[in-house]
Simulated assay, not measured.
Amino acid sequence: MISNEGVGSTFWFTIQCTVARNEDEILQERITARERTQEVSHFANAPQVLLVDDNPINQKVAVRLLDRLGCKIDVASDGFEAISKATDPKATYDVIFMDIQMPEMDGVTAMNEIRRRLGKKTPPVVAMTAYSMKEDAERFVQEGMDDYVSKPVKTQDLYAVLRRWTTITMEPATTPRLVGVEAAVQEPEPVPAPAPVAEPLPEDTASSIDTAVLEQLRQLGGNEFAAQLYDDFEREVSQLLDEAMALVKAKEYALILPHLHQLKGTGFTLGINKLAECAKSLEHTIKEGKFTGIEQRFSSLLRYFREFVSTYPEVTQAV
């Protein structure tokens, strides 16, 4: 042991461990813990969060979710901006939420550069990903991520991660008020439960959007906020599918993987599940190198998007 008065001590020790034989069970428990409903409260002292995501729609939703937990949020739209903000001498982030798949620089590369520059001062880096396979979750942790949350991101997931990786205290689930005195601490806001639609839309009209997700988005930011997200999605995806269609016609199937990945992640975030599931299935098939029938399945993707475009104004404007 090396000890310097007024500085600190450095010491070493050796322990013998056995190799875990139940890796699948451990990973499943972590997944189950994320899915388990838990009470959510505001953090008493606002965690400083850096949110890294190149997609404006995902940014808007995640910022609202983190804000409702009482976080102070900075946003970076790519890996280079994430490195710049995270390594700023004035930065005091408690957690970095890092999107994995971004153009020019992916999330793992950005994380590695942040760790290289900050060393032990690097805050916990949590992968935010639309990858859904167990192997992907394992790979991100092996590549250096401290934790991960799956898209579409839920309030409970963000809350659990922040509790796990910060020492910041949170307000109790129920805050007693002192008699005759206005409590200084705000009452915690419960996680909004999906509100029922007053007058359900016809099945053929509402099927393009999960109305429970729509109601959650309305509760998160209001009717106008939710409607704007779907307007943004139409514009974003129109361009995305035009690019992908040209690649499909040229039989450059592997090159549409980023397009499908973005469609999948944002589609699930907005509850456009048919489109998202189709993109997810097509992405998986192409990754496996199975190219038979890709054109027909891409046509199905286009059909689901046309269905969404023709129905979402009525769905989002319904009260």
Rank of each mutant, 00 (worst) to 15 (best):
residue 31 I to M: 13
residue 105 M to V: 12
residue 42 H to G: 03
residue 272 I to T: 06
residue 189 E to W: 07
residue 187 E to R: 14
residue 84 S to E: 12
residue 260 L to E: 04
residue 210 D to P: 09
residue 265 G to W: 00
residue 93 Y to K: 04
residue 227 A to Q: 04
residue 195 A to G: 10
residue 191 V to N: 04
residue 134 K to L: 06
residue 225 F to A: 01
residue 137 A to F: 10
residue 45 N to W: 04
residue 166 T to H: 12
residue 265 G to I: 03
residue 169 T to M: 03
residue 281 S to M: 13
residue 36 R to E: 15
residue 7 V to P: 02
residue 171 E to M: 15
residue 271 G to K: 02
residue 198 A to Y: 13
residue 144 G to Y: 10
residue 221 G to P: 02
residue 113 E to Q: 13
residue 254 A to L: 06
residue 163 R to N: 15
residue 162 L to C: 11
residue 74 D to M: 13
residue 264 K to H: 07
residue 215 E to Q: 15
residue 134 K to M: 09
residue 198 A to R: 14
residue 127 A to I: 02
residue 162 L to Y: 05
residue 207 S to L: 11
residue 297 R to T: 09
residue 154 K to G: 07
residue 213 V to C: 03
residue 36 R to M: 15
residue 73 I to Q: 07
residue 243 E to T: 11
residue 108 V to L: 12
residue 152 P to G: 05
residue 228 Q to Y: 02
residue 279 A to E: 03
residue 28 Q to A: 14
residue 150 S to A: 12
residue 185 V to Q: 11
residue 94 D to L: 03
residue 183 A to Q: 14
residue 52 V to G: 03
residue 99 D to Y: 08
residue 148 Y to I: 05
residue 6 G to V: 09
residue 80 F to R: 11
residue 81 E to M: 14
residue 145 M to Q: 03
residue 186 Q to F: 13
residue 277 E to Y: 01
residue 261 H to A: 07
residue 221 G to T: 11
residue 56 P to K: 08
residue 186 Q to S: 13
residue 68 R to Y: 00
residue 201 L to E: 02
residue 64 R to P: 01
residue 162 L to I: 06
residue 236 E to S: 15
residue 286 I to L: 05
residue 159 Y to L: 08
residue 45 N to Y: 06
residue 128 M to Y: 02
residue 34 R to L: 08
residue 193 A to K: 11
residue 50 L to W: 01
residue 214 L to W: 00
residue 219 Q to S: 05
residue 247 L to G: 02
residue 291 F to L: 14
residue 297 R to K: 14
residue 146 D to R: 01
residue 55 N to K: 02
residue 168 I to K: 14
residue 278 C to S: 09
residue 228 Q to T: 07
residue 200 P to Y: 09
residue 48 Q to I: 03
residue 193 A to H: 04
residue 192 P to H: 07
residue 87 T to F: 07
residue 46 A to V: 01
residue 300 S to E: 15
residue 68 R to F: 01
residue 245 M to A: 08
residue 316 T to G: 00
residue 211 T to W: 09
residue 217 L to W: 00
residue 214 L to E: 00
residue 293 G to N: 12
residue 70 G to N: 06
residue 165 W to R: 05
residue 176 P to H: 07
residue 145 M to H: 01
residue 98 M to R: 01
residue 147 D to M: 00
residue 215 E to K: 12
residue 5 E to P: 01
residue 51 L to V: 07
residue 134 K to V: 14
residue 301 L to S: 02
residue 12 W to H: 13
residue 281 S to D: 15
residue 98 M to P: 04
residue 80 F to Q: 08
residue 61 V to D: 01
residue 153 V to D: 02
residue 175 T to Q: 06
residue 271 G to R: 00
residue 265 G to Y: 00
residue 37 T to D: 08
